[in-house]
């Protein structure tokens, strides 16, 4: 009985300790490791359509109510083209072209991604072991652009909104040296832009929120551009 208790306590400690793991800090682009002989592959994860992202509606019913309350905004955002946010990949292409010999976009299927093993490295190393891609994709450096979500952000406490909808883009951009699996660059993207004036303008197709969304997109593009400065 004692042993069971001990194992349970140990498992709980490990579980709680994992919750507090140190997040990866930003890594400035290691330009000295890029040269004309390096081959760079840029992988852009699928970018979903923009929508309203609800945070803080802590119960299932609260979340349902919040989603329903913002449904007309979500419907509008989903009708917006993704071409603006997608154009951020061109900034990466141009940026790396100026620093490396060969740069191209690469495709990675979901299966290929799943096949990659976990990498047990310290901070500064990618969590997945990308090293196998060096041979299979014939590249030395992998660049990943992952736009996790975009559209509008709205904070809630249970059923009640704490914020007005804001323009929102969240994602991650990083590059990995496929020799060592070390990050050459790592940056979390998180832009929220407040709507100027009223936001609840369904008859006019939410011009305030739409403008704030495009502002967030442009801010993300500026941030990506600054990686190469």
């Amino acid at each position: 009985m004692k042993a069971i208790k001990l194992i349970f306590a140990a498992a709980l400690t490990v579980f709680l300790a994992a919750c507090g793991s140190t997040p990866q800090p930003p890594v400035q682009l290691q330009k000295q490791l890029l040269n004309a002989e390096k081959r760079v592959g840029i992988y852009v994860d699928v970018i979903e359509e923009p929508t309203t992202n609800i945070y803080g509606a802590g119960c299932l019913l609260c979340y349902g109510v919040a989603v329903a309350a913002n449904s007309s905004l979500s419907k509008h955002l989903e009708s917006l083209p993704t071409s603006d946010i997608e154009s951020s990949k061109q900034i990466l292409l141009e940026g790396y072209k100026a620093k490396a010999g060969s740069v191209e976009f690469i495709e990675l299927t979901e299966q290929e991604f799943k096949k990659l093993k976990k990498f047990k490295g310290e901070l500064g190393y990618a969590k997945k072991d990308f090293r196998s891609l060096k041979e299979s994709k014939n590249i030395d450096v992998l660049v990943v652009l992952d736009i996790a979500t975009h559209g509008a952000y709205r904070g809630y406490t249970n059923y009640v909104p704490n914020t007005d909808p804001q323009g929102y883009v969240r994602g991650l951009v990083y590059s990995v040296d496929l020799e060592t699996n070390q990050y050459l660059q790592y940056l979390e993207l998180d832009k929220k832009v407040v709507v100027e004036g009223e936001w609840d303008e369904p008859k006019q197709k939410f011009p305030g929120v739409t403008n704030a969304y495009y502002q967030a997109v442009e801010q993300v593009k500026e941030t990506i551009n600054k990686i190469f400065l």
């Binding site: 904070g155 704490n162 914020t163 007005d164 709507v195």
Partner: peptide, 12 residues
């Protein structure tokens, strides 16, 4: 002026 009307709200 800033148009940000966001507030911190404790769990209720």
């Amino acid at each position: 002026y800033s148009h940000d009307r966001s507030i911190d709200s404790a769990q209720v």
